Simulated scan of single mutants.
Amino acid sequence: MESFFASLSTVAVAEIGDKTQLLSLLLTLKFRNKLAIVAGILAATIVNHALSAGVGVWLAQFFQSSVGQSIIAFSFIALGVWLLIPDKDEESDSRFDRYGPFIATTILFFIAEIGDKTQIATVLLGTQYQSLVWVTLGTTLGMLLANVPVVVYGEKLMQRIPFAAVHQLAAALFIVIGLYWLVF
């Protein structure tokens, strides 16, 4: 269960202010069917994060030594530092609009997650915890916890969140996890 809660909390916090959260807002402004947008986020995240966690679980076999564990720990610390660098505001690709909110959201979310901080975090969490199911469930729920309120409450919510403070909290969380794995 530690893998589930660590995955949920790190992704939920790291996702706040992320480009995929901004994509959620853009999709909400573009489409009225909020349920289809949430379903698209869920579908894209399950596939993306299951693949990412699977890669992490596979990579774990190469990181069983103390050197490998240190590499994973330093990767968490590096990811924490990377979280302090703000994402660029990217526009959604309008050529997917014709497919409707579910397909457009699924495609755009999946593409936006490729190489994203939360995808890298999912690989690292899979490597550290070696649990495809719990890491995928935790990161997917974390993604939904961060994005569903944006879909439901939109701009009002986005105006009230102190993004800088949340990014600093997320960065601290990743750095603490990295330091924890270095010490223990």
Rank of each mutant, 00 (worst) to 15 (best):
A60M: 03
Q130E: 08
K34F: 00
K30L: 01
R32D: 06
E91H: 13
V38T: 07
V47L: 08
A78V: 05
S75K: 02
S131Q: 08
L141T: 12
E113W: 03
A112K: 04
H49C: 06
A78Q: 03
G68Y: 04
I41L: 07
L108S: 06
S94E: 14
A12T: 15
V55I: 15
W134C: 04
G100L: 10
D89S: 15
S92K: 14
A44G: 03
I114E: 14
I114W: 13
D93K: 11
S9Q: 11
G126H: 04
W58E: 11
T118N: 05
I71Y: 11
A43E: 06
V38I: 10
T136A: 03
F74L: 15
G68T: 09
I72T: 15
A14G: 15
I71K: 11
K30T: 10
L83A: 13
A146Y: 04
G142M: 09
Q130A: 07
A44K: 05
M143R: 00
W58G: 11
W82G: 01
V47K: 02
V67E: 09
E15I: 08
V135K: 04
V47T: 08
F96M: 02
A43K: 05
A60C: 03
Y129K: 04
A73I: 07
V47G: 01
L51D: 11
K117M: 10
Q130Y: 05
N33F: 01
S75M: 04
I114F: 13
L29T: 12
F31I: 01
L35M: 10
P149N: 11
T136P: 00
Q128M: 10
I16F: 12
K88V: 01
L8H: 13
F96T: 04
I46C: 06
F62V: 09
R98C: 06
G17E: 14
I71S: 12
Q128Y: 05
S7P: 02
T122W: 00
I72L: 15
I114L: 15
F63K: 00
D116H: 07
V57H: 00
E15D: 15
V38W: 01
I120R: 02
I77A: 01
V47Q: 08
G17L: 13
N33V: 06
L23C: 08
V38S: 07
S52M: 00
F76C: 09
S131V: 01
G56W: 07
A44I: 05
L83E: 14
A73G: 02
Y99M: 09
N147A: 15
V67T: 13
E91F: 12
K34A: 02
I16G: 13
W82S: 05
I77K: 09
K30R: 12
A104H: 04
H49E: 10
V123S: 04
V55P: 02
E15Q: 14
D93N: 13
S65M: 06
L26V: 12
V133E: 12
F62M: 10
K117D: 08
R95E: 11
